[in-house]
């Protein structure tokens, strides 16, 4: 079913972020996948052959690998094989942290690789004998304190984002624990994972918001609206999701929201999603945002695909919800017309 689709879609690169004025790519992944590894192998072979005569050729091998990585990273960032489109303010914050760490680690990486390659190229020490140096207190102190300082900075700078992600007030975070912050949500739903689908149950907006969402999550009501594998909300909505599972651990992964949370058997885990962008274009077409499962949950783990629809406003969302409600009551009536089925006999003896 997908075989034909794949090749065409791959070269089309849906979701590509074109950067104006960017130079053309050096190579296209889809076309180079097969010959590039062979070419790289060839280069390694050449480096080896040259090294038989000139041992400094090993520096070229290390340098070449470094260049390849740099190229890949830049190429991927340019061609859209990078962080998925961001759909919320918190996702922007996460991306900011990601790029901060990326910058710092890149500097360190280039520094260490530069030194390593230099040591391969350096002239032989005078007399062919290196000095018998056992260490240097000052140097040790420098390369102990500088990384420590940077790492502590990284540790501190991420704290507010983590608190916000977990739906908490940053200041009161250490005291607050896992209880959801008291700010009211616009939309409440449970997401129940099971092998292998996501079952959503929306709290009916006609009803007043329950005081205790944990209690609501445990007690389904007749007015609730059900959906399978579809997460709907509207732009700007604060969505409170109560994550549950009936069988094994699943992980609810929304790449565009930088959101991921395991569902733990026997527990209901509250989570907050603040949607800031819609994936419905002005002409009504929809950019596909997907739900994936990120924790191995059996053979069909890869099939727990769902989609996210963030409507442009609450009205559009309510339209969808009402349609869903109508079809639900239709199904209920037709089901009521049938004789009640006997509870199924258990398969295990």
């Amino acid at each position: 079913m997908i075989t034909e689709g794949t090749s065409t879609k791959v070269s089309g690169l849906p979701g590509t972020v074109e950067i104006a004025g960017a130079p053309p790519y050096l190579f296209e992944w889809s076309e180079s996948a097969h010959w590039l590894p062979l070419a790289i192998t060839g280069l390694a072979l050449i480096a080896w052959i040259v090294s038989l005569r000139f041992k400094r050729a090993w520096a070229a091998l290390f340098g070449f690998t470094l260049a390849l990585m740099a190229l890949w990273t830049l190429q991927s960032a340019r061609s859209g094989l990078w962080l998925p489109e961001s759909a919320s303010l918190i996702a922007d914050e996460v991306d900011g942290l990601f790029h901060l760490v990326m910058a710092l680690t890149s500097i360190f990486y280039l520094l260490t690789q530069g030194v390593l390659i230099w040591t391969l190229l350096q002239p032989a020490p005078p007399g062919g004998r290196a000095a018998r140096v056992h260490g240097n207190h000052l140097l040790e102190l420098v390369w102990f304190t500088v990384p420590t300082g940077l790492l502590v900075y990284i540790a501190l700078v991420q704290l507010p984002t983590w608190a916000k992600m977990k739906g908490q007030v940053p200041g009161a975070y250490l005291a607050a624990g896992y209880q959801p912050a008291s700010d009211p949500a616009d939309l409440l739903l449970t997401v129940t994972g099971r092998q292998w689908e996501w079952r959503m149950r929306y709290h009916s907006p006609d009803q007043p918001m329950p005081v205790n969402p944990l209690f609501w999550a445990a007690t389904p009501a007749a007015e609730d609206i059900h959906a399978v594998n579809e997460l709907h909300a509207w732009q700007g909505a604060k969505v409170r999701m109560m994550l549950r599972t009936t069988d094994v651990i699943h992980s609810f992964f929304l790449p565009q929201f930088r959101f991921k949370q395991d569902m733990l058997p026997g527990k209901t885990i509250p989570a907050l999603l603040h949607t800031d962008r819609s994936n419905i274009e002005a002409d009504g077409t929809e950019r596909v945002w997907e739900i994936a499962c990120a924790e191995l949950c059996g053979g069909n783990h890869y099939r727990m695909r769902g989609k996210v629809v963030i409507h442009r406003d609450k009205k559009e969302f309510m339209d969808w919800l009402n349609r869903q409600k109508a079809s639900q009551s239709e199904r209920k009536e037709s089901a009521a017309a049938l004789p009640t089925p006997k509870p199924e006999a258990r398969e295990n003896q």
Partner: peptide, 8 residues
């Protein structure tokens, strides 16, 4: 310099 080369 850290030296522990020649200990008795």
């Amino acid at each position: 310099m850290i030296s522990h080369a020649e200990c008795p």
